[in-house]
Computed example of a mutant assay.
Amino acid sequence: MAPEFNDLAAFLAVARAGGFRDAARASGVSASGLSEAVRRLECALGVRLLNRTTRSVAPTEAGQRLIERLAPALADMEAALDVLNVFRDTPTGTLRLNVPAGVSRAVLLPILADFSRQHPGITVEVMVEDSFVDVLSAGCDAGIRYDERLAQDMVAIPIGPRVERFATAASPAYLDAHGRPAHPRELLEHACLRVQFASGAMPVWEFERDGDIVRIDPTGPLRARPGAAFDLVIQGALAGMGVVHTYEELLRPHVDSGGLVPILEDWEQPFSGPFLYYPGRRNLPTPLRAFVDFVKARDAG
């Protein structure tokens, strides 16, 4: 019995997501439906494709071989269907982006709001991931990273602000109780709220003034990993738990409202903004082409 196309697509979605629940959230198909599709596919092929445990799902050797051949074939099929977009008044389809957690909140969200208003037929799927990935292998059309993380064989265009800053702040109540640091090293004596990478590693806090660079690794009562990490540490700072150090754009509304007070402003270190990167193919999928054109027009404006 020949396998069904939908069952092949379900298997690939589960393998890429690393589990049935995550694949269900990304695809809009129930986890039980995906499980049944994979079971049918394994029965049709007569070989186990996924090793399942209570904690994770991973391809078997046979499953990995199938993924390597199946992913390009499905991408070609999607590209073939995509040519129909030229016959529509507005483009349709799905745009899949791989984006770091901080960028998803500070840069991408306002851009997507405007993009969706102009292109209501395009659905945007965002995979939030801090490590650098092969966007095609991850099932994405494009990614957003900073220039030091970009592969040489990728096309990259600026997206969002060209200059960003990390800012440091705390609530008025916290500063009244613990004092206002005048130098970055004084933060070592304060309660600092930290964001971790998914691996558990924590980026150091870096400051610069007049060529003097200071890097510190402070401690504190709260550590949060990607996902809602940025919101969590900011809410912790608003509640008076300690000092937060993150994207200036995320802190600005709370500084403007008076909920947070900026500190060490003369030590804020600027850095170049992020880039949208994607494979240098001649014929881009229509949703990606629409997004690239939108980002370029927005940057030119």
Rank of each mutant, 00 (worst) to 15 (best):
P158W: 06
A37Y: 00
W205S: 01
E249K: 13
D7A: 09
V133R: 10
L50D: 07
G236A: 12
R117Q: 15
P203E: 04
L8F: 00
E206V: 15
I234R: 01
A13K: 05
L276A: 02
L260S: 02
R55N: 10
R52W: 01
A300I: 12
A297M: 08
T123F: 00
A10R: 04
N51V: 11
L222F: 15
L108Q: 10
D134E: 13
A23D: 04
V128S: 09
A17C: 14
E206W: 08
S199Y: 05
T94W: 03
R88K: 11
E125S: 14
A44D: 03
S137A: 15
F271N: 02
P120S: 05
H119P: 06
I144G: 05
V204M: 11
Y174S: 01
D22K: 09
E189L: 03
R21W: 03
R88E: 01
P274A: 00
P161F: 07
R185P: 04
P262C: 05
A142W: 05
I213M: 14
A37L: 07
S104V: 07
Q196S: 12
P158M: 10
A58N: 11
L288I: 15
R65S: 08
P120E: 00
D212K: 02
E68L: 14
A26N: 10
D212M: 03
D231T: 15
E78I: 14
S272D: 08
E248M: 10
S30Y: 10
A229D: 06
R88F: 10
Y278W: 12
T219F: 12
E265N: 10
T92M: 14
V99D: 02
G259Y: 09
G121S: 07
N6E: 15
V244K: 01
